[in-house]
């Protein structure tokens, strides 16, 4: 598995797109900090970018890489290598190279602008952690989609649809249901509903550390209890971890049975 991981990883590192991605984050980080020297403000702006862009790029990159390296995969399958290790290796190669681009691309400008002397360091670390989680989750989901669809076009459209659903449509449905059910106590429902969408989950996780915590508490004791304590934070993190693990398990399961 590690051989394949290594191969995928170096293959991607040599590819143009990783650099484009890296330079995009570098540019974003520098421009943000250049326009506004306030690190904590920049963290908020970055949050908006990360929770939208990271999943998008993760899904598209994942699907693209799978279809691109399909011939190579088939070649590998003819060799005495475990199936699961082929796919997991490829997945990890993509996910790790994307995460590295994110970490380096954003980390570098912030460190140069004096992150370590700033009080925003933990907010920033949290931002990078959720960004990495999102990369892992959405690359995994993308691999799942690709494994299920032989047709490239179909695979791509499902991937885009998945992103659109998680980033926009889900929140719309969520909002509608909250308004429709406003007579009922909604605290537990809304906490539950956020756990089912990794994008929402990461957004809440970051907002808790920024401005929303007191506003959330304004609405009721359950929110306050859940989000105001370490428990909520841990729950959210473990839910994210679960979101990484489940697609991976499915890749493992599916890749063992799939015909090529």
């Amino acid at each position: 598995m590690f051989k394949i991981l290594k191969y995928s990883f170096f293959d991607l590192i040599r590819s143009r797109w990783s650099y484009v991605y890296l330079f995009f984050y570098l540019a974003l980080g520098f421009v943000l900090l250049f326009l506004n020297n306030d690190l904590s403000k920049a963290v908020i702006t970055l949050m908006n970018v990360i929770i939208i862009l990271v999943p998008l790029i993760g899904t598209i990159f994942g699907v693209m890489y799978y279809y691109d390296s399909k011939e190579f995969t088939e070649l590998l399958l003819a060799q005495p290598v475990k199936r699961a290790s082929i796919f997991l290796g490829q997945y990890l190669g993509v996910a790790i190279s994307l995460s590295l681009s994110l970490l380096i691309g954003l980390g570098l400008p912030f460190i140069l602008y004096g992150l370590f002397q700033s009080s925003a360091i933990w907010d920033f670390v949290l931002l990078l952690v959720t960004g990495t989680f999102l990369t892992l989750i959405f690359t995994g989901l993308a691999f799942n989609i690709a494994l299920y669809n032989e047709n490239k076009i179909k695979g791509f459209s499902y991937a885009i649809l998945l992103w659109l659903f998680m980033a926009v449509i889900y929140d719309g449905l969520f909002l509608m249901s909250l308004i429709l059910l406003e007579e009922y106590p909604l605290d537990t429902f809304s906490i539950g509903a956020t756990l089912f969408n990794p994008i929402d989950l990461s957004r809440i996780l970051i907002l808790l550390k920024l401005d929303i915590s007191a506003l959330l508490g304004y609405t009721g004791a359950v929110f306050q209890k859940f989000f105001g304590t370490g428990l909520g934070f841990l729950m959210a993190l473990s839910a994210l971890a679960l979101w990484v693990a489940l697609p991976l398990l499915n890749i493992y399961r599916k890749s063992r049975k799939k015909d090529f």
Partner: peptide, 20 residues
């Protein structure tokens, strides 16, 4: 306005849908 009506919706703050 929505938050005033249904306070729990604050959980959606800063999401893309709300911006839209």
């Amino acid at each position: 306005y929505i938050v005033n009506r249904t306070p729990e919706t604050i959980i959606l703050m800063r999401s893309l849908f709300i911006d839209i």
